[in-house]
Design a protein around this nucleic acid. Sequence first.
DNA 1: ACAGGTATATAGTATTGCAGAGTAGCTTGC
DNA 2: GCAAGCTACTCTGCAATACTATATACCTGT
Lengths: 106, 106
Amino acid sequence: MENITEMLKGVLEGCVLEIISRGETYGYEITHQLRELGFTDVVEGTVYTITMRLEKNNWVDIERRPSTMGPPRKFYTLNAAGQEELKAFWRKWDFVSSKINELKAK
Amino acid sequence: MENITEMLKGVLEGCVLEIISRGETYGYEITHQLRELGFTDVVEGTVYTITMRLEKNNWVDIERRPSTMGPPRKFYTLNAAGQEELKAFWRKWDFVSSKINELKAK
DNA sequence: ACAGGTATATAGTATTGCAGAGTAGCTTGC
DNA sequence: GCAAGCTACTCTGCAATACTATATACCTGT
């Protein structure tokens, strides 16, 4: 897919929230899930800046655990504030996407 | 609607392209059309930066004409490159929005 | 004269995704 | 033992974009 960078701004964070809400997970795995979704160019650095933001905003709980596959993993789970934020994200997404599809159809 | 600024990044420009493609129009009117669409907080300055970008990228033809309602208007029409860009925008939108809706539904 | 709507223009700021690189742990094969 | 390759987190600097705030200017109505 051609360059979709700008279009991902403001939605990638929401996608990460949604992925974490499905169950405890960590940065590297989130990256791979986003790529599997179709956003093939997402790199670890990008996801890292997002998870750092989630931490800073206190939307996630964190637990560090060792891995047999490499260095320790930092597992994230959504806390109450994070779940509120996720809801807000989908509200915004439904609004914006419906408006844009309206424009497209008209 | 709560703050949708970040979500508009990368799509607002496409909306402006679409609006211009419907027929010759100018910045101030584009702003009002976006507001009518539902993006009520869009201001003239924002649209101006977008139209400047369209000019810079040579996606529009420009004609300046006097108005009976105030200062002269700068009318925009999409040229061939602009129409290509509009098509590319919708391709990207369809891709990204389908992936996000897929994530939402899963 | 003044207020208010119409209309373009611009400087400065915040947010966000990305490129590029570094550090570190574990497994496999030579 | 050790290099290669995957796993995994971290950090810096950058580019793109929407917004804030303001300035300028034209016209109409009071």
